[in-house]
């Protein structure tokens, strides 16, 4: 599956790199910065997922139970993954992550915004910042899957440069190129 995935020829971007601050659509001061690996940030993130509305789960993630949330977070917060968090003060409002495929060359992207913070521009800022972060560490190819009926998510991904690369299953597969492989 990995080796056959198609990526756009064109390089998307440029994207901003975190840390970044902005005022969201509800006048909240939001800061986006890379996960620092501290217990405090881990706990805040875990809290965000405990609060997460089950209706906004996608393809089984985030998991529902706290113990399973922690197991899942341990996997995607590992050293070979890239994570950024959107903060409203000490509250984790959103989280975006890049997780390597087994070959370590391609990264799967996912993004989550807590319900109270949705539709305020945080998702758009998160995904652009994550792609900027990824590019800054040398990542060139990013992919994701999204449920085909999730139109807001699909249009957000398209807006930043993702193209549909697989549409034969329940989920759409989309991919973006953010850097030159030869660089």
């Amino acid at each position: 599956m990995t080796s056959e995935r198609r990526y756009p020829d064109e390089i998307s971007g440029p994207f901003p790199t975190p840390p970044r601050e902005f005022t969201d659509g509800e006048d909240r001061e939001i800061e986006i910065r890379p996960y620092d690996g501290s217990d405090a940030e881990y706990e805040s993130l875990s809290e965000m997922y405990v609060e997460f509305d089950p209706e906004d789960r996608a393809q089984g993630i985030p998991p529902g139970k706290e113990s399973r949330i922690r197991t899942w977070l341990d996997g995607i917060l590992a050293d070979d993954c890239y994570n950024i968090i959107a903060w409203d003060g000490d509250t984790a409002a959103g989280h975006a992550t890049l997780v390597p495929d087994t070959d370590g060359d391609h990264f799967e992207l996912a993004i989550f915004v807590l319900q109270d913070y949705q539709q305020a521009g945080i998702g758009t800022n998160l995904i652009k910042s994550l792609l900027g972060y990824g590019k800054s560490v040398g990542i060139t190819k990013v992919w994701l899957t999204v449920e085909r009926w999730n139109h807001p998510a699909v249009s957000l991904y398209k807006k930043v440069g993702f193209e549909t690369t697989g549409a034969e299953n329940f989920e759409l597969e989309m991919a973006i190129r953010i850097g030159d492989d030869e660089e």
Partner: peptide, 15 residues
């Protein structure tokens, strides 16, 4: 099966 991220994906046979 599960993606690296932990997303459940249903293959074409199951669908």
């Amino acid at each position: 099966s599960e993606s690296p991220m932990g997303k459940i994906t249903i293959g074409s046979t199951a669908e």
